[in-house]
């Protein structure tokens, strides 16, 4: 019945395997759903939008984490209409991907706690400077508290969740 003749293709692994795509698609969706989990803080509520990305970097792999966190960020930003403008969000997304890579790398070299500290610093403090060209130092300092607090919450949640699931044999 089949129209296409079966051909034996090489079984060499490709990057875009079904498994990777499935994990990435679902965790990108989860980044959006995470942003609906509102964590109260002194600066208003903060969403868990980057926790799935940081978690993925630890649980699934560096590239998975980087792609998930970047696209997850764009998704969340898109839904609220890119409040910091599209180019800015693109740039932030790229930065976050870099931070996710670093997060995994430091975790492997030095352990989870140093990795969390580094990620919080990068994602909270360093990322704020993206506002420099468009908004000057005022915008940087205006944004920094929010980014730092958001990073603390997201990075810590991802680290704790990773610890809780490490022994579950799920990944």
């Amino acid at each position: 019945m089949s129209q296409v003749q079966p051909v034996k293709e090489d079984l060499k692994p490709v990057f875009w395997s079904a498994k990777r795509i499935a994990i990435m698609a679902i965790f990108i969706a989860l980044s959006y759903v995470g942003s609906l989990i509102k964590i109260p803080s002194p600066l208003g509520t903060i969403g868990l939008d980057s926790a799935p990305g940081f978690f993925s970097a630890l649980a699934f792999g560096a590239w998975e984490g980087a792609i998930i966190i970047a696209i997850g960020h764009l998704f969340t930003a898109a839904v609220v209409g890119f409040p910091l403008t599209i180019p800015m969000h693109l740039f932030i997304a790229a930065l976050m991907a870099l931070w996710a890579l670093t997060f995994r790398w430091v975790n492997q070299k030095l352990g989870l706690i140093p990795a969390m500290i580094v990620a919080i610093f990068l994602n909270g403090v360093v990322s704020s400077f993206t506002m420099l060209p468009a908004g000057g130092m005022g915008a940087v300092l205006g944004l920094m508290p929010f980014l730092v607090l958001g990073s603390v919450i997201n990075v810590v949640v991802s680290g704790l969740a990773y610890k809780a699931l490490k022994k579950s044999r799920l990944f």
Binding site: P6, V7, K8, E9
Partner: peptide
């Protein structure tokens, strides 16, 4: 009649 170990899942999907 196809030996499963010789084909990818994707190919077998038509069977």
């Amino acid at each position: 009649g196809l030996d499963v170990s010789k084909y990818r899942t994707q190919t077998l999907a038509q069977r």
